[in-house]
Every structure is written in structure tokens, then in C-alpha cells.
Amino acid sequence: MNQSRFWVVGGEYTSTDFETLIKGTERIAGPFDSRGDAERTWRALSEDYRPLARVRFTIAQEPPAALNA
């Protein structure tokens, strides 16, 4: 059985509405085989950018390959 993979995605947005990323600030980390690994990276990135109110990261889960068939 195939497992999901996890990605950490985000960057700097044009406002604190977090709707539009500023081009060139996008960051993608992964894939991670476990949510725990993704969470550790998410925490580190979030802490690095803590002083910047318009920067946000989130964890995205990729569906198992079997669901894509």
C-alpha cells in the first residue's frame, strides 16, 4: 500500500489575508515520508520567519498514488 507524502509550502504574502504570494518568495520543502518530519521542517521555517507577519507556511498532504489511478 502506498503512503501519502507531505510537503511544506509557503512564502511571503502581499497582506495578512494570506491570499496572494509575492513572486519569488515561494518555498517548497519535501517530500517527507511522515507528517512528523514535515512538522519539524514547518516549525523550523516558521521560527526563522517569525518576525515577518506576512510569511506563512503550511503542510500539504499528497494523496497516495493508488488514489490517483
Rank of each mutant, 00 (worst) to 15 (best):
D33C: 05
I28W: 07
A53K: 14
G30Q: 01
R43W: 06
S46P: 09
S34Q: 01
G24L: 00
N68V: 14
R56L: 05
T14I: 13
F57K: 04
V8I: 03
D37A: 13
G30R: 04
F57T: 00
R56S: 13
R27H: 11
L45Q: 12
A65T: 14
A65C: 09
F6C: 00
S15Y: 06
A60W: 07
E12D: 11
S34H: 03
W7F: 01
A69G: 15
D33E: 14
D37E: 15
P63I: 03
E12W: 04
R50D: 03
G24W: 08
D33W: 07
V55Q: 10
W7I: 02
A66C: 12
A66V: 15
T25L: 07
G11E: 06
R56F: 00
A66Y: 14
R40P: 04
F57D: 08
G24H: 07
M1C: 09
G10R: 11
E39M: 10
S4G: 11
F57Y: 08
I28Q: 09
A44E: 15
D17I: 03
R35H: 09
R35S: 06
W7T: 01
E19G: 07
V8E: 00
P31W: 05
G24N: 05
Q61F: 06
D17G: 15
E26G: 05
M1A: 13
A65G: 10
R56P: 03
I59T: 05
G30I: 07
R27G: 06
L21D: 08
P63N: 06
